[in-house]
Simulated scan of single mutants.
Amino acid sequence: MKAKIGQITLKCADRQKSASFWSLILNGAPVGTDGESPWITAEGPLRMAFEDVADGEAITRLGLDVDVDYLELAVVRAVRLGASPVGPIDRGGPDAFQLMRDPEGFPFRFVSRSAGD
């Protein structure tokens, strides 16, 4: 039996705002809807969906890495779209990365697999 991840769902205070932000971060992928929940399909096999956080519901966090060719440019672009960097770029390992928070505070990392940016 084969198993694969078919979708990542982010719980959000403003699902449309989050979908728009991630659509732009992931190369302007189109935003669609399944009933009420917006979703995006980025390059690659995964789809991201966005749902409202119910009152009193704890937000489950997930580590999301976004591979980029140019780390600094990705950070500047994300900041213009409402994201915030957390600390400096980490170049201490084989991959350079920058920890970020999207406009709703969801943590993610931009990663340069070549570490040569």
Rank of each mutant, 00 (worst) to 15 (best):
A74Q: 07
R47H: 07
K11D: 14
L81H: 11
A58M: 13
R91Y: 04
D14F: 01
G93E: 09
I5T: 05
G35R: 10
P30V: 02
G87A: 08
P94F: 07
M1C: 09
L46Y: 10
A83C: 05
M48A: 04
G93R: 13
P107G: 02
P30L: 00
A54Q: 08
S23M: 05
K17Y: 05
I40V: 15
G56S: 08
P38I: 03
F50H: 02
E43L: 04
A96E: 00
G44S: 06
L24C: 05
L26A: 13
Q16P: 00
A13M: 14
W39H: 12
P94M: 12
K4P: 01
D90V: 05
K11S: 12
A19I: 07
I40C: 08
K2T: 14
S37W: 07
K11E: 12
D52I: 06
S114F: 06
T9V: 13
D34H: 12
D65W: 06
D14N: 03
V75W: 09
S114P: 03
D65R: 13
T41G: 12
P45Q: 07
S37L: 10
I8V: 15
D95P: 00
L64F: 08
K2E: 11
R101C: 00
D52S: 14
G82C: 09
K17I: 03
S18N: 02
V111L: 10
L24A: 13
G6S: 14
T33E: 12
D34Y: 13
R61Q: 15
K17R: 14
E36L: 01
F108T: 00
F108G: 01
A74M: 10
A29F: 02
N27W: 03
D117A: 09
V53L: 15
A83T: 06
R61T: 11
K4E: 15
V31N: 08
Q16C: 04
K4H: 08
G92R: 13
E72K: 15
K17G: 06
S23F: 04
T9W: 05
K17P: 01
I59E: 14
P45D: 01
G82D: 07
P103C: 09
F106P: 01
F21D: 05
I25S: 02
T60H: 11
W22M: 10
F106I: 04
A42H: 13
G32P: 01
S37Y: 08
P30T: 00
S112I: 04
I59T: 15
E72M: 15
V86R: 10
S84F: 04
P30D: 02
G35V: 10
A115T: 05
R113Y: 11
E36M: 03
R101I: 02
G105S: 13
M48E: 03
T9H: 06
P85W: 00
K17F: 01
Q98I: 08
L62F: 09
S37E: 12
Y70R: 15
K4Q: 12
S112E: 04
I5V: 14
P94K: 09
V76A: 15
P103Y: 10
A3F: 14
A49Q: 07
A49H: 03
P38S: 04
G56Y: 05
V68S: 08
K17H: 11
L24S: 11
D69G: 15
